[in-house]
């Protein structure tokens, strides 16, 4: 075995990890999904909240339009009704 082979064998030789390496990796793996889940939940909640807010605004606008339509159409019919009652028809 020449010096090159010896260097290579040494460099590629199996080394045991430092003490506690396994536990640290496992801990990190367990921690990351929790943060991801929390971040995802917050994002979803913000999205749902915004969508709800927009829907409420659109609903209020639609309601106002319906009430305005009823005021205009109903008001004219009421004028007719009042007029007819006044003329005794």
């Amino acid at each position: 075995m020449d010096w090159l082979e010896q260097e290579l064998a040494q460099a590629l030789a199996r080394k045991e990890p430092a003490a506690g390496f396994d536990a640290r990796v496992r801990a990190r793996l367990n921690r990351r999904p929790q943060w991801l889940a929390i971040a995802a939940t917050v994002l979803v909640m913000l999205g749902v909240g915004e969508a709800w807010h927009v829907r409420q605004q659109e609903g209020q606008l639609a309601k106002e339009q319906v009430m305005t339509a009823m005021r205009i159409a109903g008001g004219k019919l009421n004028r007719v009704q009042t007029h007819l009652k006044g003329t005794g028809q």
Partner: peptide, 8 residues
Amino acid sequence: LADLGGHF
């Protein structure tokens, strides 16, 4: 509808 119009 006429009744409703009279309220407004």
